[in-house]
Nucleic acid binder design. Structure first.
Lengths: 147, 147
DNA sequence: GACTTTTATTTGATATATCAAAAAAGGCAG
DNA sequence: CTGCCTTTTTTGATATATCAAATAAAAGTC
């Protein structure tokens, strides 16, 4: 019987960890504001912090496909968190504006997100977090096309 | 309260790493056998290793929802990798059998999966992998309902 | 044996992931 | 200006994620 060592399963544990974290976060978010997703809240915060981002830049920030961003943002417009206005310099793009409803979501959920992160990382030392970060970046690099 | 840019937190790098790995793996798999997904291959291998698993047990092994497993397995039956037969003792369940087409997929892709894992972890020391594993397990525990 | 509760799976509705292809505007060479 | 190439976004098709609710069979209770 062969022992399943971390070497064989560590990639599973990455999947496990991120899924646990996402489910945990979504639950806490839904408790306060049902009907919005973790992804939507994060994108809302990103747009609110940097007003001039293109959708492609937003996609890169959250490691999502451009097609996904199109659909997520459309939903956020439909749900009243964002409005799309014409972009003067480049008519392929559009200016994304956070609505007052969107701002209120950020205000309400910002602390929840902070709390989720702190809870997820509870008991981890500063050193340990740095090490985690470093190791994960190596894996990302190993798996990235090096064009 | 100050919301640090989410992209800078370590939890993002977990997401980034696992997505890079999944895309990388899928690309290598599709090169050899187009039309099958990473998830399907892993589930195929799991069923092939342990013949008597219920769908719920399979779901737990790959950290997926039961509903997802139902749909993935249905697709795998449609695509001829699996067959469902009646389970004698419990008629709610069904016996999942890997078809010869499924076995051939495992034979072809097994080495690819091994290669993907080795590539993803290239340059990481044994110690470092253990540490990664330990830290991720802490995060998972922190985010898991402790009923 | 009928009733209730659990367990295993499925379905419905909606969100996100991915790839390929299309659409639409911008930029550039000639 | 015209044709060509690039960039940004969208669409189509399909797979997976998630929660809630529905089925259906097994197990426990009386």
């Amino acid at each position: 019987m062969e022992l399943r060592t971390p070497t064989k399963t560590v990639l599973y544990s990455i999947e496990e960890a991120i899924k646990s974290y996402r489910r945990f976060s979504q639950k806490n978010i839904s408790r306060l504001i049902p009907g919005i997703t973790v992804d939507q809240v994060l994108i809302l915060i990103i747009i609110s912090d940097e007003k001039e981002l293109t959708q492609m830049e937003i996609a890169d920030r959250v490691f999502k496909d451009y097609a996904s961003i199109t659909r997520i943002i459309n939903l956020m417009v439909i749900n009243g968190y964002l409005v799309k206005e014409d972009h003067k310099q480049d008519r392929r793009r559009s200016m994304l504006q956070v609505t007052s409803k969107g701002k209120s979501v950020i205000k309400t959920l910002g602390p929840v997100i902070e709390h989720n992160r702190r809870t997820a990382l509870a008991g981890l030392g500063e050193e340990e977090i740095m090490q985690l970060y470093t190791t994960l970046k190596k894996i990302t690099a190993n798996c990235s096309p090096k064009d």
